[in-house]
Computed example of a mutant assay.
Amino acid sequence: MKKVLENIIEKNREWSKRGEVASYIPELAKANPNALGICVTTLDGEEYFAGDYDSKFTIQSISKVVTLMLAILDNGTEYVFSKIGMEPTESAFNSIVNLENNKQKKPLNPMINAGAIATVSLISGETAEEKFNRILKFTRKITGNDTIDVNNNVYLCEKATGDRNRALAYFMKGNGIIQGDVEDILDVYFKACSMEVTCRDISRIGALLANAGVLLNNERVISREACRIIKTIMVTCGMYDASGKFAVHIGIPAKSGVGGGIMAAVPRRMGIGVLGPSLDHKGNSIAGIKVLESLSQEFDLSIF
């Protein structure tokens, strides 16, 4: 497996030159556009690495899967999806059009920014600090990494440049979709996106989902049913408005982030974490997608 991963990484490195690192959050523009790495975590606990697998990056939108798990644990699936839809979108991940154009005024799904902000608002906690500490503790648990923390520079940068997210949040507040103080909710959201991880960390999140909600130490974290729902939404919505194409060519439940990470879960087989900060015009890792496509073809991973 290790040799196969090394070959896949080297074969697809050239794709990094065809994209660009995220620059709308200035701190993310400092990332190495040529970095490319992968970690595979199998359900028997074996881990295989290649490339820049130990480089740290901020989790960004992959945190949406983590916060969705926690919101479901706190509220149950029925209540969570009374506030947030399950439908894919052809609009960008930070679009406000989706909120304005649907009759219920609720976010179409939890994988776009509006949906993730609404998800964060559902997480239990008396204060913003308590809410975020629960997210951080949960992330550390499901990755098995107690050193995960916030990249403070990225967090402050996201907070300073997050006006579009504020617009989404205040729109939802005005329509009764989210309760509580908007700035507190956004603060938790920005911090969650700014948690710093590696390919190994996100591959372990993928392994949890691949194992129907059970950690590698056999501890159940979320129900099988909740896990099924999350993986289904990852298939239809996890790669933003490129999710359909990704499903056709790769066929694995996955979630990307503009930090260059992609977390994927192959049911009953493995979790996968990929890093490639150079993005395509949809906001997905351009080389990371090619790496996953090569891996899916090599091991026949498509669930379809």
Results as ranks from 00 to 15, higher is better:
Asn284Phe: 06
Lys282Phe: 14
Asp149His: 14
Cys157Asp: 13
Ser124Leu: 12
Asn102Trp: 05
Leu301Asn: 07
Glu90Ala: 14
Gly144His: 07
Val291Thr: 10
Cys193Lys: 01
Asn152Ser: 14
Ala247Ile: 01
Phe57Gln: 01
Gly19Tyr: 03
Asp280Ile: 08
Gly51Gln: 04
Gly45Met: 09
Arg18Trp: 14
Ile148His: 08
Pro26Leu: 08
Ile112Thr: 04
Val214Glu: 05
Phe57Ile: 05
Val221Trp: 01
Asp44Pro: 06
Asp74Phe: 04
Asn165His: 12
Ala128Pro: 05
Val235Phe: 05
Glu10Cys: 09
Lys11Ile: 15
Lys173His: 14
Ala212Gly: 07
Ile222Gly: 00
Leu136Met: 14
Ile59Tyr: 02
Ser23Asp: 15
Pro107His: 05
Tyr155Pro: 05
His249Met: 12
Ile286Thr: 07
Ala22Asn: 05
Val188Tyr: 00
Cys237Ser: 09
Phe93Gly: 01
Ile135Asp: 00
Lys17Leu: 12
Glu293Leu: 08
Val65Thr: 12
Gly176Ala: 10
Asn218Ala: 08
Gly271Trp: 01
Glu14Met: 11
Ala128His: 06
Gly283Gln: 06
Ser23Gln: 08
Val188Ser: 01
Glu47Ala: 07
Met69Phe: 07
Gly174Arg: 10
Phe171Tyr: 12
Lys105His: 14
Val235Ser: 02
Glu6Tyr: 05
Ile148Phe: 09
Gln297His: 13
Asp54Pro: 05
Cys157Val: 10
Tyr48Phe: 12
Glu183Thr: 15
